[in-house]
Amino acid sequence: MVRLGAFGVGLLFVVTLLWAAVQPRDPVQPDPVEKYHLAPVAIDWSWRGPGNAGIFGTFDRAQLQRGFAVYKGICSACHAIHRVAFRDLADIGFTAPQIKALAKEYDIPSIDDKTGEPSTRKGLPSDKFPLIYPNEIAARAAQNGALPPDLSLITKAREGGANYVHSLITGYRDAPKDWQVPDGLYYNPYFRSLNVAMPPPLSGDGQIEYADGTKATKDQMARDVATFLTWTAEPKLEARRSTGVAAVLFLAALSVLAYLSYVRVWADIKHPKAGAVPAE
């Protein structure tokens, strides 16, 4: 009875699927975006360590600080990093007085403690980087309908991560002849729809004056800010990797010992010897 029922049900599903499979398909129009879209260029990042393997690498503090300078000087005109607190910058080598001074440059929404009216106060190290626009509507109104995303998690929220950020901000070019770019948008083959609302953020070499004297080429700035945004998305990356190296080494040693004891326990079963005492 079970097998008879199964035969019926099985036949029904199989026939339905085969019927669906032999249906003619609508002709597919080739997607013009597919033709021009490019995958992000893969880069050997210093923080991915030897072989770009992502096992031993640590962030270069100087590069993180340069990346922050690029973010502050260029990106922060439109993009917030609202998940990062000022105090977090201690991790990338800022001193406590520097952080305090930096926080003071920002106004944080607050309540006036006398009148109860909305007001602002000077930032503290414990505050997060403030939003650029109070809400999405304000952002779109100011940005010609576009919404600049928060960048705190951007390298984890896009396929390709840091490679994508680097490719996107250095990848602006003239559109192919058969590609129409609507007014107010810019052609970028690394962007999903090829038409991005963000104007090219890096205009040319020397746009930022690096404190450490590094030459601020477009590529250098893009690498630095992509590295900085990798840190904002994954601030515990270094702790994670060092934990991983220690844990894997420990567990590898444990596995060897566990294997040896397994072999020892099973020795009398697998290779019985006359007079041997079983392990139990």
Binding site: G54, V248, S255, A258, V265
Partner: peptide, 23 residues
């Protein structure tokens, strides 16, 4: 016999797990 074998299996499993979690 099988506690020893399971412990060995668990060690290897945790090693792979730690590798994926951390890297």
């Amino acid at each position: 016999y099988y506690t020893a074998k399971d412990f060995f299996g668990l060690s290897v499993y945790l090693m792979l797990f730690a590798g994926v979690v951390c890297f």
